[in-house]
Simulated scan of single mutants.
Amino acid sequence: MNLYNFNNELSGKIALVTGGTKGAGKAIAERLAQAGAKIIITARNEPETMNNSFTFIAAHLGTAAGTTQVIDRIMKEFGGVDVLINNMGGSETPGGGFSALTDKHWEDTLQTNLLAPIRLDKGLLPYMLKKASGCIIHIASIQGRLPLYDSTLPYAAAKAALINYSKSLSNEVAPKGVRVLTVSPGWIKTTSAIRMMERLAESANVSIEKATEGVMDSLGGIPMGRPAEPEEVAELVGFLVSPRAAYLTGTEYVIDGGTIPTI
């Protein structure tokens, strides 16, 4: 039973959620749909099951051609979007610290986690600015402040840059009616997180449970005692893009179960 009454607060709005086929992206897309938004999602591959009311665009956003493909189709079919959730991201780099990383590891990670949202913003912001309304959410990570050097050094650096960029962009476009916010989750219980544990376990020749304990230790522990559920992140995003959050912009919202130990 749905305990929340969203009152169609996003009715008539068009929302793009990148990486919207699984994990937090899927949960965000479903949450915004519940609020009445028309949903566009992107990913490299079409999911086995998907809400039939969603528009799916297959694209590799880690390339300039992929982002151009998405922007062109959206502008042609919808004219633009009112809500942009730059959720797509991730890390595929090996364990072993800085010496295990090649230039390509760095380049691929920066393309996916930093340049992809920058390109989408640049292509879709003009529509929002013309209407003097809209909201952009950049999904970053607490690794922007609390980096894990063993296997996600490029990812952490890219997310730190995304947080900085998001604040700068907000300062530019807030006076023109567009809100820009950052959501930085801690550990989310997703298939990507599980794969990262598998890679760390293989690299260190330990069990997945031991690798998981190692990540928890490196984070300093999670006071809530568990990772976040994707739906919990989606609920925060759903509020931030709603009219109820109309005065919020230029801010980073951390959702990490208390992981970051400082204020």
Rank of each mutant, 00 (worst) to 15 (best):
I194G: 01
K167R: 13
T191K: 04
K38D: 12
P227V: 11
T259E: 07
K130C: 07
V83A: 01
G62I: 02
K38Y: 06
L124N: 03
R73H: 03
I71P: 01
L129Y: 03
G238Q: 06
I139P: 01
S192R: 09
L248Q: 07
A27C: 08
G257R: 02
A174H: 04
T21Y: 00
H138M: 10
I28H: 00
P47H: 00
A35P: 09
F98Q: 05
L153Q: 05
P47E: 00
G257C: 13
I142F: 06
I136N: 00
R73L: 09
M196P: 02
H138R: 09
M128R: 02
E9N: 14
V83D: 02
P261S: 14
A157N: 03
I14L: 14
F54E: 01
D103H: 00
L181F: 02
P154M: 13
A43Q: 02
E229F: 03
H138T: 12
V254W: 03
A100R: 07
A33L: 05
G89M: 07
E107V: 08
Y149G: 11
P94C: 01
N52H: 09
K104N: 08
P230F: 10
M197W: 04
G25F: 01
S184M: 03
I14Y: 10
S192F: 06
L101I: 07
I142H: 02
L240D: 08
N5S: 14
I222L: 15
A204G: 05
T102E: 05
L200E: 14
K131C: 08
M75H: 04
E231K: 01
L248Y: 01
L84N: 02
T212F: 05
N7F: 13
Y165H: 15
I260W: 08
S192C: 00
E235P: 06
N87P: 05
R119T: 04
S207E: 08
G79P: 13
S203D: 12
G23M: 03
